[in-house]
């Protein structure tokens, strides 16, 4: 009799564990702390979070995973938000931070309260937090390598930088300048700031273009490629090889140009879906499988061969995206070790 009951219980447990493969984290609550929502990358990022975590909650992998966004992109506001999350007793906080070091105090209180903190995109330097970093330096260098391979005879280049004073912009710039030293037949004839914003980049390029000689290529940091193309066309000049940043309007323009006269370029950026990778890393940590603190995130690259496919999958006016899975996080952990 007792053995029958025990047998039933065992069967029920088996059934349960099959349905809830991650029973260990089934009761866990993971919050997203986001510092800004005012552009298409962040909007896609938030949608990706909702899609992926909604599925995870439905499958019983975690209890809940709400997203919180501060209104003003201010460090103080995000620090207060994190304090609230500590009080509300979340098990993990996934954070896109307003500053790499100014939030470290709040992050440390969260860690001290036993909360797992995973930072991505805008990463934090607090030692207790995990960092999903992107090799922006490598991305910058890769653009120059691509142009060198396409234009062996060299030529004049324009560099569109992002937001002055940010670590991401510095890393991009360093990668580009280092690689340019190895290709002396390229001449950087103008550097402008586009603030990663299409309208600002368009204005900056249009402002310098009248005074510049023939341009062979444009180095970019994302969000600025289509604006640069617009500036060239409204100045009545032929568009050079402009590196794109995975926006749908950039890809659509590229395809249109390719169909017309064989125009070819490349495009790369971090997928906004990287937030889902951060979510799964948090889940792995809560599940008792912590990866190393510093993890290198892959970025999404689009070439002429993958252009048509990617464009077809990207919503009009949106960004090329990729949602990551639990397996991706496990692989990242394996590579990290």
């Amino acid at each position: 009799m007792t053995s029958r009951i025990a047998g039933l219980g065992f069967a029920a447990m088996l059934l349960l564990s099959a349905a809830h493969a991650d029973a260990a984290t089934a009761g866990k609550r993971i919050a997203l702390s986001n510092n800004y929502a005012g552009n298409s990358w962040r909007q896609t990022m938030l949608t990706s979070w909702t899609d992926a975590t909604g599925q995870a909650v439905k499958m019983g992998i975690v209890k809940e995973a709400p997203a919180f966004t501060t209104a003003e992109n201010q460090v103080t506001e995000q620090a207060a938000q994190i304090q609230n999350m500590i009080l509300q007793g979340y098990d993990a906080i996934v954070i896109d931070a307003a500053s790499p070091n100014a939030l470290n105090g709040a992050i440390k209180s969260a860690c001290d309260a036993g909360i797992t903190v995973i930072s991505f995109d805008g990463v934090v330097t607090a030692p207790c937090a995990w960092r999903l970093t992107v090799d922006f330096k490598g991305m910058g260098a890769e653009q120059v390598e691509y142009l060198a391979q396409r234009l062996p005879q060299g030529g004049n280049l324009i560099q569109i930088r992002g937001l002055a004073g940010t670590s991401i912009d510095d890393a991009f710039n360093q990668g580009m300048l280092d690689e340019l030293k190895r290709h002396p037949n390229f001449h950087l004839v103008s550097t402008v700031y586009g603030n990663w914003t299409q309208t600002v980049a368009q204005k900056a390029v249009a402002g310098v273009l009248p005074g510049l000689p023939d341009i062979a290529g444009v180095l970019t940091e994302g969000g600025d490629g289509y604006g640069a193309a617009q500036a060239f066309s409204s100045a009545g000049r032929k568009e050079p090889i402009i590196i794109m940043g995975n926006r749908q309007d950039e890809l659509a323009w590229w395809k249109q140009q390719h169909d017309k006269d064989g125009y070819t370029t490349m495009s790369s950026s971090i997928a906004p879906g990287v937030v889902t990778l951060a979510f799964w890393v948090a889940q792995q940590v809560l599940d008792g499988h912590p990866p190393p603190k510093d993890l290198q995130v892959p970025y999404l690259k689009i070439s002429q061969d993958t252009l048509a496919d990617t464009l077809a999958k990207t919503p009009s006016g949106g960004l090329a995206n990729k949602l990551y899975t639990q397996q991706d996080a496990e692989q990242l952990r394996a590579v990290g070790h």
Partner: peptide, 10 residues
């Protein structure tokens, strides 16, 4: 500029 985006007025 080829379309209405959220950050164009910033």
């Amino acid at each position: 500029s080829g379309g209405a985006s959220l950050d164009m007025g910033v």
